[in-house]
Nucleic acid binder design. Structure first.
Lengths: 223, 223, 223, 223
DNA sequence: GTGGTCTAGACCACG
DNA sequence: GTGGTCTAGACCACG
């Protein structure tokens, strides 16, 4: 391989890295050893390494050596994205998922699950403080997802709830949440519940969609 | 109340643990240091620790020390659930999310993004091997989610893809994926792409829904 | 400058490039001459150049030399972006700009300009073919911008029109534009015109906003 | 019809010109080659060309050849208008666009984008020199537009910035920009940023509107 | 003759 | 002893 030696070595290093050859110690041999191993000058070896460094697959410490950069697990990567999501994106996803969850709940919920949803509705409407109302509001939506009997859908909803918890600002505007708006929410919940009781999936979907539209306007006005 | 000393220390350790005092290093001081700190014998200190060990909040390695058992983050817990989700649940979620993602892509994609989707379509149809086809198939769907310009939606799709990768059996039936079915998929993709090009969100949503219905039948037959 | 010689040279080259020293011929001296000029080895000189190449400020041709890469003018850059804009982004901008343009027109238009707007309205409502209707529709909006007497605002509207022309797909869905929807548009135009005639800027803004909301729903449905 | 030969050739050249046959190189063949191509004398060929030269579609350089006179694109024409826009028109457009951009940013910005805006604010307030302050001021507004995630809106803002750069006199009065006014700007920026952090779109829009009103008074006094 | 690649050595700051 | 930088030379493919 006289041509493009550095490229060949880079490919080789990439493979050895992926194979986990250096995973146990977390470090690569020194530049000098690697150069000797491949029978090239140190400069060439360094060129071969450059790309891996730029991609963050390895990193170098002067005087210490070259280290493998443990890749963040896919879940860590996703988690990182989730922490930085905009309110608009979050609401858009809710508008996609929640109406259809309501429809699924209408056809899959047990009687007990519907009663649990009804309880969350009643507690929310009766609660005096805003904080308590919000808690029961969250519970209302959560129980609808539980009633879909789709564990994945339920997990996704828990994920969305988590984002809302970690980004307090998302619901911040609700602090200016008036008594009137609260009564509106209560009425919307009542209509969703009504549809679920009737096992009317079309109506459940529609009412949930309208409720989220109402939420959107409370949060973003006319945008 | 000399006998209650251990209980007091346990309470103290519990608080310090919860406060995150040892979260950074992930380890507690040695038993000897802790005993000295509280001014008690090592035996007493060990009694105070026992409960925490039983609850799994800390664990001991002989000769190494006492370590904090970092609780799995809520997201890790959620992810744990995701690991054994049923194929039916997964498909149901896809049927909820993907058609609406296609609709969003129709209105939010840049021209370049639509061309990227077209490329994935073309490569998929042209690829000879099944493995290659599946790769471009996944890419096709992924690029549609990217074109929605909703980072959260995109992250959720990556999550679903991850589940499919880690539960290879979910798509098991696809191994019996015939040439005819592949041509059908190709045609479906073409229709979705066509709708995206026309920026027709209603058609994009419909074609994606039909495509997933086709997938459902390939996986589960007609029920 | 014994330390980081390459960095120093890069800085120098960057300055000379920006000063236009090589703009007339469009090419730099050879690597060998540059290295001699700075009194360094060719390798070092190459390292100094690398960054400029990556940024696209210069490019190299084997056997020919190093060339200056003429930077696209800001207007070319903007134009490039405009060609790749999504329908959603375009509509959002219209929703920002047009209602306020209508309000400005209400207070700044001459009587003749309002009559010109009225003419576009009348011609649109009367026109039999869709193509003709669309032309007069565009004219209606354009004349409102002209009536704001703000040349910049008018220019921006022409820019938006240009984008729509160059991206035929943006209005493609209007081909499925029914007779009923057309009558709705006609009624909306009438209400906007009415407000302009009354010199009621608040009403003009509101009616234009409602009209664009109507357009949004025609294009994107419920997204 | 031998006399009409020139007319025929002119028609042919016109077509070939419109077809873009010579658009890539920007130049036509030499007169001699064209004459040979059409099988006519150079005199006839020159006659055929005359009209095109008079219309400015092509132009001749003695000793160099015949060149296509690329017509300015519609966007270049629009840009030409923009070059001498009045300060009042520019400010009016900013007053239309920027408050709504701020509102959009409140709902669409990622956390990282809001931090970038905060950085521009902080750097502006801390900077000693006026020139530096103005640079960070521009950056503050630019980053808000970036945070809207609307590429068209961002491009329009870049266009407005370009106009301001090329018409330095538009902001001329700012040279008499006192320390007090600067502190006011800083406070306004702080209030806008505060609203963005709270994700309060209504407040963000209002604070931006007040800030631009403040700018208007600094430029034009109270009229 | 040009840029692209490589060699075999050297000294440096840092750990 | 490690990675970071640099030298002075060489041969290559390509124009």
């Amino acid at each position: 391989m006289p041509k493009r030696v550095a490229v060949e070595i880079e490919r080789s290093l990439r493979e050895r890295l992926a194979s986990g050859e250096w995973a146990s110690t977390g470090r690569l041999p020194t530049e000098r050893r690697l150069a000797a191993h491949y029978g090239v000058a140190r400069n060439t070896l360094r060129k071969a390494i450059e790309g891996l460094v730029r991609e963050g697959k390895i990193f170098r410490h002067v005087g210490r050596g070259i280290f493998v950069n443990r890749e963040p697990s896919p879940i860590e990567q996703i988690f990182h994205v989730l922490r930085d999501v905009s309110p608009a994106d979050l609401l858009a996803v809710r508008q996609i998922v929640e109406p259809q969850a309501a429809a699924l709940a209408a056809s899959h919920a047990s009687r007990a699950q519907i009663e649990a949803i009804a309880e969350a509705h009643r507690m929310g409407c009766e609660s005096g403080e805003i904080a308590l109302f919000e808690q029961w509001d969250a519970e209302f939506h959560q129980r609808i997802f539980a009633a879909t009997r789709n564990e994945l859908l339920f997990a996704i909803h828990r994920l969305l709830s988590l984002i809302r918890q970690q980004n307090a600002w998302i619901d911040l505007k609700r602090e200016s949440f008036g008594e009137e708006q609260r009564r509106n929410y209560c009425r919307s919940h009542a209509r969703i519940l009504e549809a679920l009781r009737r096992r009317d999936d079309v109506a459940a979907e529609r009412e949930m969609r309208l409720h989220l539209e109402e939420t959107r306007q409370a949060l973003f006005g006319r945008h």
